[in-house]
Nucleic acid binder design. Sequence first.
DNA 1: GCTCTAGGTTCAGATAGTTAACTCAGAATG
DNA 2: CATTCTGAGTTAACTATCTGAACCTAGAGC
Lengths: 157, 157
Amino acid sequence: MERTNYEASNCSIARTLQVLGEKWTLLIIRESFYGATRFEQFHRVLQCPRNLLSERLVLLVEEGILERSQYREPGSRARMEYRLTDKGRELMHIMLAFMQWGDRHKADPEGPPVVARHAACGRELHVTFACSKGHIVTEPDDIDLVPGPGALPPVPA
Amino acid sequence: MERTNYEASNCSIARTLQVLGEKWTLLIIRESFYGATRFEQFHRVLQCPRNLLSERLVLLVEEGILERSQYREPGSRARMEYRLTDKGRELMHIMLAFMQWGDRHKADPEGPPVVARHAACGRELHVTFACSKGHIVTEPDDIDLVPGPGALPPVPA
DNA sequence: GCTCTAGGTTCAGATAGTTAACTCAGAATG
DNA sequence: CATTCTGAGTTAACTATCTGAACCTAGAGC
């Protein structure tokens, strides 16, 4: 299974896209967050081609984002289930960032189908940035993107 | 320009992917955040096919994520530039969520090429969730995903 | 022994992405 | 003022990926 190469630069975004950037992948993960665990569940909701679903699940397991295991309901034969690993659950930030932007700019008139709440207090959550001093930042303008240790030479004008 | 349809459910994530989910799109936006504004700048860094770059830029302008305008450097002819709109700048959350996951799980040994800092205090930022009461949540387990006003019937087991 | 279901696999045809060559206008060069 | 150069695309042939549908298999239920 050869996959496309975005690697023109040392970039975590590109490397992450190499895993998540194919069609359906992020929606499969969305369904995992919403509670789907079985092939037919994913397929019923997403209505994506079965072979792609199959390929993507294999890939996500290889990447350590999902975990595949057999289980057996009493009186039923053994089946496979796919569950998010810790690494997969850390994709929550990406999911909710997508959801938040979409709710803001691509909203359905009915309102959002899913809302994220703080389990402890029940209030609605939104994606923010926090610095190590505890400052919460929401405005893009309050963020500086600066070269890090693995920086490449800047883009020539 | 027909685009693919992910719409099996009322979902902001799917609708956002319909705009950002095609190949190269998110990397074009990454470059916008890093300061690229001109066709050849994007192309030099990304090394993507020129026709796709061209198509994607048109699309991002149509979507109101980039703004296209003419400008003229003295002694040079008029050129086009592409700049993030406010709507585009709000994609920062998605960008940094990708970057953070990638830095954690797909890191380059050199370290990250770009770091996000709080403009006011200079400290490193990370993506978090905050509720309206000001609680900061980082653990996926502290988040409940609950049906919102536009909810669809739940996935049958 | 036949049918149903979950979880896939196979394959032909359509769509999207890639590669490389070409265009075109204005600036610079000679 | 003819020629080359550069930025910003366009075009066309080719390749890879995705889609839709049919097919397969093992175990459960009838």
